[in-house]
Design a protein around this nucleic acid. Structure first.
Lengths: 243, 243
DNA sequence: CCCGCTCGGTGTTCTAGAACACCTCGGCCC
DNA sequence: GGGCCGAGGTGTTCTAGAACACCGAGCGGG
């Protein structure tokens, strides 16, 4: 191990080099793993070992069934800005409204169960809301809550009460922390339809896990914002606001 | 993947449970990987996958050629305390002295090259010193420095000048940070001999990497302290001291 | 138009070894 | 006493598949 470099390490370094040189840009899909194994002249397991290293360094993202992608550079973006933007639009007199699309219990899929740290297929409350500005959809928000919380929450009027408020005042759960990441996606059929966009249109997707006191994950939000309706700018300055 | 839990995950969770329940205590050596594979009825690769998860969570430590051990709980221990203890003994009039055992260039082994971030088998200066209290060996310190630094350093009188001072005043390298871990070990032949102990006697081993301005690793220290000569206590309060 | 199913593509898990690399200890030789 | 070597034990890398699980797009039926 001292003088000999394992193959998987060499492969990882070569791919790393390609990514960091810009040869493979963010979002680019790598050849499939079997192809990579052939190209590098090794077995699939050896390629997977290399990819594991790169994924651990957040250089790539492997998506089961889809492929392996160069990870987007991390955007340190505070979605509070979105809420503040909405607050600002309101202050400017632009009509901003929220439409509750649905509220139902579902079985948590892999993403939801990981985010909320609940079992696979555990029951979760899914709430879908559309945020409209001047009657036009600005964002689609899909929120998931663990079932025990959700069962208390459906008793609240979610069309009229912001979720965070409902959590705090109806259930006594205070959100004290959130973790969020934003990526560029193409809108799927469901999202495109609700947002009035073409399927495949570019959009921001924000994923946020909100934690209550004690570190417990209580809400997993996915927000889709069409790319032509929102721009991330660094010049905006805001002070306190609310959801 | 939703309903089905991979075997490696089950194995990891079972071992995790055993470790966290105290069944497997810190420092305990797990059965060898081939034995674990047999016991769990899987192949070695599957066990290794499980162990990888645990190692990533710092629950275990795999040592090539030696075995797999339950990781010791992290001891946040400031070796400055050792230096301060020596300073305190001096203040109490106990004779404390340092004896330079050797100073020579060696090829960096795996541990040294990793610590100093130099190539495998690169040249490094190895300095061995014995710290004596009242004529009795208290600790054995083996320090490694990259050769370019070491070549400047051997011109200094290391028997009379503390290493850190020599670095700062003779070479202009200021240590600004160090990373350290302490583990319980059994003394090997060389260390036991120098410290006047039986081979295999229990001892503390402190490993420390010291960084200069700019984040460069400049010294890798390994200090062996026989268990019967030093006790880590929380009641000791010290203020500034020197090496 | 919407929903469900199927298919092709891709990632994931696992088996079963084999060979290599590392480590320690004891013994022997200089 | 120190250094080197060999043996036994243990971790690491890698091969070569096979089977399973996931995903999205397209098509067909209601």
């Amino acid at each position: 191990m001292n003088g000999r470099v394992p193959r998987y390490h060499r492969i990882a370094e070569e791919l790393r080099e390609r990514i960091q040189s810009g040869d493979l840009g963010p979002g680019v899909r790598l050849p499939n793993q079997r192809r990579l194994a052939r190209d590098f002249g090794v077995t699939l397991m050896t390629v997977r070992h290399a990819l594991e290293l790169l994924e651990r360094d957040n250089l790539i993202r492997r998506q089961h069934g889809l492929g392996t992608f160069v990870a987007a550079p991390s955007i340190d973006y505070d979605i509070l800005q979105l809420r503040r933007l909405v607050g600002e639009l309101r202050a400017q007199g632009e009509p901003v409204s929220t439409r509750l699309l649905s509220s139902r219990f579902v079985a948590a899929d892999r993403r939801v169960s990981a985010a909320l740290e609940i079992g696979p297929r555990a029951r979760a409350l899914q709430i879908e809301r559309l945020r409209l500005v001047d009657g036009r959809p600005m964002s689609l928000q899909r929120s998931f809550l663990p079932a025990p919380i959700g069962e208390e929450l459906v008793k609240a009027d979610l069309a009229a009460t912001p979720l965070r408020q409902a959590l705090e005042f109806k259930i006594g759960l205070v959100i004290v922390r959130a973790r969020e990441s934003v990526s560029a996606v193409r809108l799927g059929r469901r999202e495109a339809r609700e947002l009035g966009c073409a399927v495949g249109a570019p959009a921001f997707e924000s994923e946020r896990v909100s934690f209550a006191v004690g570190g417990r994950a209580v809400v997993f939000d996915r927000v889709f914002i069409p790319g032509d309706r929102f721009r991330i700018t660094r010049q905006l300055h805001f002070e306190g606001a609310s959801a």
